[in-house]
Design a protein around this nucleic acid. Structure first.
Length: 363
DNA sequence: AATGAATTCAACCGCGTTTAG
DNA sequence: CCTAAACGCGGTTGAATTCAT
């Protein structure tokens, strides 16, 4: 009865993965594809539990993972989505398919929380209305006034509605085009929007730099995998070649990171320079008004662009390896779910009702 | 140069859910 | 339907690294 044990817990290795282990794992997955994790340790001889293998693959080795600093756009998306979804990192990660939930979680905990706290402190400094504990880490505890929060959420839902309307009214927009658009910054991995090397997107050298020199082996493995394996995850799971190459580039560029100057800001050069001139209020507003701010030059996205991004981001859900591609099914049900389910716990009842009323017309 | 504090992030842990038998 | 293991997720930890003094 029940399933057979995935691996015996005796002699299971823990701790950081070695390059050799990575290569073994990658080679195995190259041959068999990801999944069936319980068989991985036994078949590969890795002294790791299946869970550890899966984690290593999904968080680190999987092609299509974008590493390195988060772009301004990604940052805003995370802040935005965190405000909307809470600490549901997997859900947030599904909107940023090139980032892992672990990465996003770490980035939130180490950078964004701090950044928001800082900005909030700046705001409070202006107001002389410091909150007791400042920023608690949960966006819902953020000392934005409730009305402000609701207005923002309302705006978000309006944006989503617009996107839905457009998705319905248009003759099925080419979602992958939008997707590509959304992914552009990441496809240009290592380069900013001006096509310049993104040397400034590094806040600190990658700590696995000693390891990194060895990851060239993994890069080679992956490279040959991309060339030789038609059924590899890149095709089977909608990770396109570009993403894979992107990842290869990143892996092989790890070793260069040590030389990149540390201490640059989180913002990218083109956008960060601008935000440096904004007031804390503007900056804070910019961070939270992912869709609506006009004060920040970096936020000069048009409404159409935002809609495009929204649909693109949503379509990304179907690009995620854990989620099957529904083949052209515009993710309206998902959008609906997002609007009706995910927003609900955080939204005022009015907002829920509003979204229900307005979206029900569409369906 | 040495040392301690602070930061970062890969990996682990534990829990709820899903699923094979 | 029941049981137990796999799976997936969010929270936490701790080693490695950087920064400040």
């Amino acid at each position: 009865m029940g399933r057979p044990p995935c691996c015996d817990k005796v002699g299971v290795k823990k701790g950081p993965w070695t390059p050799e282990e990575d290569i073994i794992l990658v080679s195995y997955i190259q041959e068999h594809g990801p999944g069936n994790w319980r068989s991985v340790p036994t078949n590969t001889g890795l002294l790791r539990c299946s869970k550890s293998c899966r984690l290593r693959w999904t968080n680190y080795l999987r092609p299509g993972i974008k590493r390195g600093n988060f772009t301004d756009h990604e940052e805003k998306m995370i802040i935005h989505l965190q405000a909307l979804l809470g600490n549901r990192w997997a859900a947030i990660a599904s909107y940023l398919p090139q980032r892992t939930d672990n990465d996003i979680k770490n980035y939130w905990n180490t950078h964004l929380k701090k950044k928001l706290r800082k900005l909030q402190t700046g705001l409070d400094g202006h107001d002389h209305r410091n909150s007791q504990d400042g920023f608690s880490g949960n966006s819902h505890d953020q000392p934005i006034s409730k009305g402000q929060w609701e207005r923002r959420l309302q705006t978000d839902i309006h944006m989503a509605k617009q996107a839905l309307c457009e998705a319905l009214s248009l003759d099925k927009p080419p979602t992958h085009d939008l997707h590509l658009q959304d992914l552009k910054p990441s496809i240009n991995l290592g380069y900013n929007n001006n096509g310049q090397p993104n040397t400034n997107t590094c806040s600190r050298p990658h700590q696995a730099s000693t390891y990194a020199s060895n990851t060239e082996n993994i890069a080679k493995l992956l490279e040959s995998w991309m060339k030789n394996s038609p059924k590899g995850p890149s095709s089977a799971q909608n990770h396109n070649q570009t993403n894979s190459e992107t990842n290869l580039h990143q892996i092989s560029s790890f070793k260069n990171k040590k030389n990149i100057a540390a201490g640059c800001s989180v913002s990218t050069s083109s956008e960060g320079a601008q935000s440096a001139t904004t007031t804390p209020e503007q900056a804070f507003d910019s961070l939270f008004s992912f869709n609506s701010s006009t004060s920040d030059v970096s936020q000069s996205m048009s409404v159409d662009e935002n809609n495009a991004n929204f649909t693109a981001e949503t379509s990304c859900l179907f690009q995620d390896e854990s989620k099957p591609n529904l083949e052209g099914q515009v993710p309206l049900t998902l959008l609906e779910k997002w609007l009706l389910d995910d927003a609900a716990p955080h939204a005022h009842e009015d907002l829920i009702n509003m979204s229900l009323e307005n979206t029900s017309v569409l369906f």
